[in-house]
Write a protein that binds this DNA or RNA. Structure first.
Lengths: 258, 258
DNA sequence: AAGAATATTCTTGTATACAAAAACTTGACA
DNA sequence: TGTCAAGTTTTTGTATACAAGAATATTCTT
């Protein structure tokens, strides 16, 4: 569908970074990627420029492009902002809610219930994601919707992670129900507060979960936890000299045949 | 200082867009820009990819890059989000404020006062900007600081515009003083509320101001109001056929000698 | 043998070349 | 005169070429 190779590559790399298959600090070699995608360096470079502009990679002049995962502190900070954005979405949605949106939200909610009954984590996550996206839209603020979705996408793998905490899915769904009730009642403040707490809890649960992984980089933990390590040679994690500029490991290189 | 031409060009174009000298819908012709910056198309294209990734231009495959200014509705939406981000900054800052930050904030505030006494709008605006930036930093949330600055930059020309409303500068400064007091008292809720209102008022004042410009695009109004129309041939604004894809005027082209 | 200096190889950044799609021009026809 | 179609010109997207900086290997010195 995308007319341009650069766009296709961009999406592809973005996914690889967000899912954690490209670990933090990984160097994105233009030539190797060009071989891998069977194009010249030109569209690769354009994709990298776009990723750099959105902060998914660091682009160091004459050095190369390096995958940039959020640090643990940064993730907590991101959850803090996400909570506030969702809070705003909730407050606005409570005031501006249309019948269509309410119907859709309830549908997404029942999708969560079904998934939970079957015990399908992935399905639950998809329905959950749909619920939140609908909520953003229900805010009636297109810009806010865009920003919320953008941040949501970046937190996606980590939100997914926290759902693995025992009993979290049930708790999460209860929170959704309460949110729906407040929404339907048109209670802006309650809706906002519930949503803020809902996301804040996600941040905390994620925090709990990560306590067991200390010492490892987030990217590594992600890769392990999600069981994804494509595109990466899993062999000896050769010595990682620090990048003099930002203190990140730089030795590994993406795009190898492995 | 930037080692890469593409970065330099990107900044340049970004400024031209943000200040309004590149009007909405303007087509950014690669060849003309290449001549203008005295480089080949390659770094121009890379700059355009980055601008597209941050939403400052629309990149339509096989068609070109078009300047994308926020519509009026979108601007109101952006102010709504900005208000919430600043509110969060204020709440966090009230809890986490350090002596250094407080000193700096007071310095910025007195910078506002001095500028106001002399009647220097530009100086006032710079001090004002510094005040807000310090506040973002005082939140102690680096990610939030980045996001707030990003949105602030995009709203910059419009915030500047609303300062022209009679008496607004004095009122704005009074609001700053109240915010400082609440901050110093460590009153998170008050600080947050004051800041949200502070920004919301900016949005409203801007709204008032724009009422007089209805019918014109925001970019045009910006250009007129700020007295900037560089890079644009000021002659007959030739007929503007609608772009079939997004309904924006596309005929004018950037980078002409004129 | 360790470290510094130099040579070599790699990689990035920019320029140029070329193919294909879009826009524009021209002219035929109603 | 207005509309449509074929041909021409522009302009984009990708590939390739080349120069300069960074990384690596090698040699020389102590």
């Amino acid at each position: 569908m995308p007319a341009r190779a650069a766009d296709h590559i961009r999406q592809n790399l973005e996914q690889a970074i967000l899912t954690g298959s490209y670990v933090d600090g990984l160097r994105l070699d233009e030539l190797r990627l060009a071989e891998q995608f069977e194009v010249s360096r030109t569209p690769i470079r354009e994709a990298l420029q776009m990723l750099a502009a959105t902060g998914l990679v660091d682009l160091i002049p004459r050095r190369g492009a390096f995958v940039r995962h959020p640090s643990f502190v940064e993730l907590v900070e991101m959850f803090e902002v996400m909570a506030e954005l969702e809070c705003l979405c909730g407050r606005l949605a409570a005031r501006r809610l249309t019948d269509t949106h309410l119907v859709d939200l309830k549908a997404a909610e029942s999708g969560c219930v079904s998934a939970l009954e079957v015990g399908d984590t992935d399905a639950y996550y998809r329905a959950n994601e749909r619920f939140h996206n609908l909520l953003y839209q229900a805010s009636g603020n297109g810009f806010l919707t865009g920003e919320a979705n953008r941040l949501h996408k970046r937190l996606q793998p980590f939100r997914r992670l926290q759902l693995r905490v025992r009993g979290r899915m049930v708790q999460s769904m209860d929170e959704h129900k309460a949110i729906l009730l407040a929404l339907e009642a048109g209670d802006a403040e309650t809706t906002g507060r519930l949503l803020r707490d809902h996301v804040a809890i996600q941040g905390e649960k994620f925090h709990d979960l990560m306590a067991g992984f200390h010492g490892q980089s987030l990217g590594q933990s992600l890769g392990q936890s999600l069981g994804q390590s494509l595109g990466q040679p899993l062999g000896e994690p050769e010595e990682k000299p620090e990048d003099p500029l930002n203190g990140r490991p730089v030795n590994r290189v993406a795009g190898q045949a492995g």
